[in-house]
Amino acid sequence: MNKKLLSSYKFGLIGGAFCIAAFVVFKLIGMDPTKLSMLFGYFLIPFFLFIGIRFYRNQVNQGLLSFSEGMSIGFLIYSITGLVSGLGIWVILIFSSSLYEEIKTKKIEILTENKDLIVEQMGVESYDVTYQSLLEMTALDIATNDFIWKIIPGLFFTIIISIILRRNFK
C-alpha cells in the first residue's frame, strides 16, 4: 500500500489545490463558487485519476495494472482531492464569514424563488424541512457537500479508467 500511496498522493493534492483555486476564482469573477467548483471537479477529477493511474501503471508498476490496483490508486486520488478541497473550502468560509453568509443567502433565495415548484412536486413539508435546514447550514456543511461531490463522481470515473488502463501482461 505504501507504493500506491506514494505514487498517488501528489495527484490528489494537486487536484485538491486546483479545486480550491477554482472556488476562489469563481467567487472573484462573481459566480456561485459552490456550484461551479463542483462542476469544475467533474472535469478535474477524471483528468487527475487518468494521469495518476497511468503514472502508477507505467512508472511504478512496470507497465502492469490490475483492476484492483487501479481502483486503489483512484480511491486514494479522489479521496485526497475531496479532502483537500473540502478542508480548503471550509477554512476559506471560516475566515470569510461574509462569503459564507452570501452563499447561504443565495441558496435561500433560490429555494424561495422555486417554492411553488417544490411544493407542487414534493409537498409543503419537504419545502419547510429544506428551508429549515438551509437556515441551520454551517460552513462545514458546505465543505462536506463539496467533499461528497468529489467522492461520488470519483468512484464512477475510477471504475471506468481502471478498466480502460488495465494491463495484466507486457
Rank of each mutant, 00 (worst) to 15 (best):
V91N: 10
W90I: 11
L65C: 11
K107C: 04
K104I: 00
S72L: 14
F75N: 01
I103W: 06
T81C: 06
G70N: 05
G88T: 07
S85Q: 08
L65H: 07
G82L: 00
F95V: 05
S68H: 05
L65A: 13
V91I: 14
F95N: 10
E101C: 02
L99K: 03
I89G: 07
L76R: 04
L76G: 12
T81V: 09
G74K: 01
E69T: 06
L76I: 13
M71Q: 07
G70T: 01
F95T: 02
I80S: 07
S85N: 07
G82H: 03
T81N: 08
V84E: 09
V91L: 10
Y100C: 03
G70H: 01
G88H: 05
W90G: 05
F67N: 02
G70K: 00
S85C: 11
L64W: 10
S85P: 05
L65Y: 11
G88A: 11
L99I: 09
I92N: 07
I89F: 01
F75Y: 13
G70Y: 05
I77K: 00
F95P: 02
L83T: 04
E101N: 12
L99F: 13
F75E: 05
V84I: 15
S68R: 13
G88R: 04
S97E: 15
I92L: 14
I89Y: 00
Y100G: 06
G86I: 00
I103A: 08
I92M: 11
K106V: 07
I77D: 10
I73Q: 06
S66N: 15
F75S: 05
G88W: 01
L93A: 09
L65F: 06
G70L: 08
G74I: 01
E69F: 07
I89H: 05
F67T: 01
F67D: 04
G88C: 09
K104A: 01
S85L: 00
F67L: 14
T81K: 02
G88Y: 05
S96E: 14
F75T: 00
W90V: 07
I94L: 13
K104Q: 03
